[in-house]
């Protein structure tokens, strides 16, 4: 089971970051504070990726989620007038969202954790070794443009992002003129 070493300590610290940050996001009334808690939480996820020997994904997590999405959230907050000092609860459907959130969490627990839980799980965790196709980032790069690999998803991802940007520009800009 859990043994006490550096990885365990790091895991506990990162988990505290993630859970504490997540808790802060939903409890604070100040949207900017919520964003900062979110950054803390995302940083913890980056730490998880490092612990799972996927430093490339950790860097992506920090670059994209903290460096871009968190900032985008702040821009969005500042676009909406006087949202930063919101004091009353505007969300009347909090009970519904809480139920949906709990349901989703339950679904994730059933889908992800249960199959690998203990020795009696549906899958034996020790048997399902990590993928042999992609071991490090170089293999990822080769697989991304491999004829028999993921070259089609790779190109489709690019097309999707282009479409996303065009959509964003169309929606965000007031093209009435």
């Amino acid at each position: 089971m859990l043994e006490f070493n550096a990885s365990t300590v790091a895991f506990v610290v990162m988990t505290l970051f993630i859970l504490g940050g997540a808790l802060g996001v939903v409890t604070t009334r100040n949207l900017i504070h919520a964003t900062l808690y979110l950054i803390l939480s995302l940083f913890g996820v980056a730490g998880y990726f490092v612990l799972l020997s996927a430093p490339f994904l950790a860097a992506v997590q920090v670059l994209v989620y903290i460096g871009a999405i968190a900032i985008l959230i702040v821009f969005a907050v500042m676009l909406t007038r006087s949202m930063t000092r919101m004091s009353e609860i505007l969300n009347g459907q909090w009970l519904l969202s809480a139920i949906v959130g709990a349901g989703l969490f339950l679904l994730l627990v059933i889908g992800v954790i249960l199959p690998t839980w203990g020795n009696g799980g549906l899958l034996d965790a020790t048997v399902s070794a990590p993928s042999q196709v992609v071991i490090d980032t170089v293999d990822l790069g080769k697989a991304l443009v491999d004829r028999n690999g993921f070259v089609l998803p790779f190109e489709v991802a690019s097309l999707l992002l282009t479409a996303a940007m065009i959509g964003a520009i169309v929606i965000a800009r007031d093209d009435t003129e």
């Binding site: 871009a68 985008l72 964003a168 965000a172």
Partner: peptide
């Protein structure tokens, strides 16, 4: 915001 989106 638009700059943010393009950057993202």
């Amino acid at each position: 915001y638009i700059y943010g989106l393009i950057f993202l």
